[in-house]
Amino acid sequence: MTQPNEQLRCILALDLGTTTGWALRGYDGLITTGTASFKPGRYDGGGMRYLRFTNWLTELDRLSGPIAAIWFEEVRNHKGVDASHVYGGLMASLTSWGELRGVPYQGVPVGTIKRHATGHGNASKEAMIAAARARGSSPADDNEADAIAILHWALETRGGAA
């Protein structure tokens, strides 16, 4: 049996955060993007954000997948403690989800994504949104724009292998 063409695989790119940006290239080549909110509700326990994130990944995989690979923005420096905790919890949930299903995942440094999208490793949020628009997308915010940039980086560099 032959391996499926790499171009036909479902690939997911994520900008992890309370508002997670996502971009998905389906097996049919169609790119779909958006944001998903994982803001805790008033009566939510501390782990509900991560449980909702895991359920969201499972539903995305069920409806659009199977997801063959995931790339995410690898943040090394956060502006606040809360953002750092949320990112770490989402990343732990993502990597556990991937490990359980045998889905490979890889972080991509922020500067690499920005440089690929705009030519500058320290591009502003506005520049990232403009770069996504220049590629024909209409991102709702910088989270979605970052996910679009990650997806294009992954596709154009074959995940950094090119």
Rank of each mutant, 00 (worst) to 15 (best):
G34S: 07
G34N: 07
G34D: 07
G34L: 13
T35E: 15
T35C: 15
S37W: 01
F38Y: 03
F38N: 02
P40T: 04
P40S: 10
R42C: 01
R42A: 03
Y43S: 00
Y43I: 01
D44E: 11
D44V: 03
D44P: 03
G45K: 11
G46L: 13
G46S: 02
G46M: 12
G47F: 14
G47T: 14
G47D: 07
G47M: 13
G47E: 11
G47L: 14
R49V: 05
Y50D: 06
Y50W: 07
Y50H: 10
L51K: 14
L51G: 00
F53C: 03
F53M: 04
F53E: 00
T54Y: 01
T54H: 15
W56N: 05
W56H: 04
L57F: 08
L57K: 11
L57R: 09
L57V: 12
E59G: 03
E59N: 07
E59D: 13
L60R: 08
L60Y: 03
L60T: 06
L60E: 13
D61Y: 06
D61N: 15
D61L: 08
R62P: 02
R62L: 11
R62I: 09
L63N: 11
L63Y: 08
L63P: 00
G65L: 01
P66N: 09
P66Y: 05
I67V: 15
I67Y: 01
I67C: 04
A68C: 08
A68V: 07
A69P: 05
A69C: 08
I70Q: 05
I70W: 04
I70C: 12
W71Y: 14
W71C: 08
F72T: 02
F72P: 01
E73K: 08
E73Q: 09
E73M: 10
E74V: 03
E74N: 01
V75N: 07
V75S: 03
V75F: 06
N77C: 09
H78F: 15
K79W: 05
K79H: 10
K79L: 13
K79I: 07
G80P: 03
G80Y: 05
G80T: 15
V81I: 10
V81K: 09
V81Q: 07
D82C: 02
A83R: 13
A83V: 00
A83F: 03
A83K: 05
A83G: 09
S84V: 02
H85L: 15
H85G: 06
V86A: 13
V86D: 05
Y87N: 03
Y87M: 06
G89F: 08
G89C: 10
L90P: 02
L90V: 01
M91R: 15
A92I: 14
S93W: 00
L94N: 10
L94M: 06
T95E: 08
T95G: 00
T95C: 11
T95D: 04
S96H: 11
